[in-house]
Design a protein around this nucleic acid. Sequence first.
DNA 1: ATCAACCATAGACTATACTCTAATGTTGTG
DNA 2: CACAACATTAGAGTATAGTCTATGGTTGAT
Lengths: 133, 133
Amino acid sequence: MVDIYFLTPYICNMLINELSKKTGISTHTIRFYEKSGLIEGKQDESVKSNNYFHYDDVTIEKLEFISDAKSVGFTIKEIGQIIDAWYNRKYTKKQKLEILDEKLISLEQKMREIKEMKKQILQFKDDVLNDRC
Amino acid sequence: MVDIYFLTPYICNMLINELSKKTGISTHTIRFYEKSGLIEGKQDESVKSNNYFHYDDVTIEKLEFISDAKSVGFTIKEIGQIIDAWYNRKYTKKQKLEILDEKLISLEQKMREIKEMKKQILQFKDDVLNDRC
DNA sequence: ATCAACCATAGACTATACTCTAATGTTGTG
DNA sequence: CACAACATTAGAGTATAGTCTATGGTTGAT
């Protein structure tokens, strides 16, 4: 009997419920992300009795990346571009690097915006403390 | 004749079209923000022939703040809380400082998420450059 | 006085990102 | 072998944040 784990690229194989528990993202939302093309489960061809999707550890990483990205204002579409530039074969090497560089620039911009906001909120605090508002 | 500008807190008085041009935000969106309670124009009581709203320079600052905040993932509701904590009288001093501190913590969190994303995208670039994807 | 360029309100419409329900099938433990 | 706890798809419903249209009034330059 051959150990299947030597034959698959999957370190770990889980169904959607386990993936949901490990990431804190609901199964509904995970399915929504899958329909949106951000992640991808695999059906086991050798099992004919069901059509369950299996997910690996990379999917957990992707979902954590998606959570971070959404939290700082990236859209599903933008997140999809990043993931595709990393994982997908539909782009050339050059295109991938262009997309990733573009997103790095967005990140720098967001970082500046956060610093500006922080400065302003500290000023607001100062205004409140000194009864200027 | 008394100069009205000595009697008002307004440095500059403009109508919605000028405000739109100065901020790059459409008049529709500005009105939407006004309905949402983020900004507030003032009608000139002495003018009976129209009901035009007038905006001051602080409104420009607020709109720029809103743009930054939206860009890094804050919702209208959260932005409203910040602006109210700064400008509004409906909170006590203590409540205002609590809200502002809470938002500073959100900003720190977002900054961490951005740094994490940056690290990952740099890794993605490395993967692409070394044909690991 | 005319007319383009503005102003206002109300409400319909759209896109995004979920979130939930219904209907139905599968698995595994007592 | 029952049945709780899982799985699937399709599609409806919701919240958020605009975006647009219609209708009607005002302003200011010619």
